[in-house]
Amino acid sequence: MTAYIDKPMRHVDDGNMTLDTYRPRRARFQEVMRVGSMSIKVNAICADGKAIDDGVLNKAKARIIDAEPEMMRTPQLGAGFAILHEGEEGRWLLLHWWLGGGICARKLWRADLAPDAEFEDAPPHLFACVWELAIIDFERCAWTETAMSHKPVSDYIARRFSGETV
């Protein structure tokens, strides 16, 4: 497997690090999928602006389904969200599900960009990139404005990311 970051930081002559330039990426809500008793909102981000290939989306959904036993071992509240991110140098899959107390549990996988590449567990110290954090923030706000405001979890599921870019 290749590096665990899409674009590494570059060193400049004076020894300081410089970061890549931010460029918006296409993002959209894909679908709601059922995983046992849970509803998972699936979102997608593409660095090149294209749509996610159906085969890649199906591999991601299969990996989410495989995570059902782990999610069911937690005091989950029946809802969560996933982000499938086609980066420039890798493919990322983030799965989050809501627990009591406003806690969000997570799993993170990475695959190479080849269509047949399999998602593998990412190192536990990794969390999310700047583009994924935009959708995570949307989902956090949706959770606090619905389920944590004494509205039904179905109201949370009905809230969909509607932006075009992150």
Rank of each mutant, 00 (worst) to 15 (best):
Y4V: 04
D6H: 08
D6G: 05
K7D: 04
P8G: 05
P8K: 04
P8S: 03
H11W: 12
H11T: 13
D13V: 09
G15N: 08
M17N: 07
T21I: 15
Y22R: 02
P24W: 04
R26G: 00
F29C: 01
F29D: 01
R34W: 13
V35I: 14
S37I: 11
S37Y: 10
S39M: 13
I40M: 07
C46R: 12
D53R: 07
D54T: 14
A60P: 07
A62C: 08
R63A: 13
I64W: 02
A67K: 15
P69G: 04
M71C: 04
M72Q: 15
A79Y: 02
A82W: 00
H85K: 01
E86C: 03
E88N: 02
E88Q: 11
E88T: 03
E88V: 05
E89G: 08
E89S: 12
E89Y: 00
R91M: 08
L95I: 06
A105V: 08
A105Y: 02
W109F: 07
A111M: 09
D112Y: 08
L113H: 05
E118G: 06
E118R: 07
F119T: 12
D121C: 03
P124K: 12
A128G: 04
C129H: 06
E132H: 09
A134F: 02
F138L: 05
E139V: 09
R140N: 05
W143M: 14
W143G: 04
H150V: 06
S154M: 01
Y156R: 01
I157E: 09
R160T: 12
F161L: 07
T165V: 14
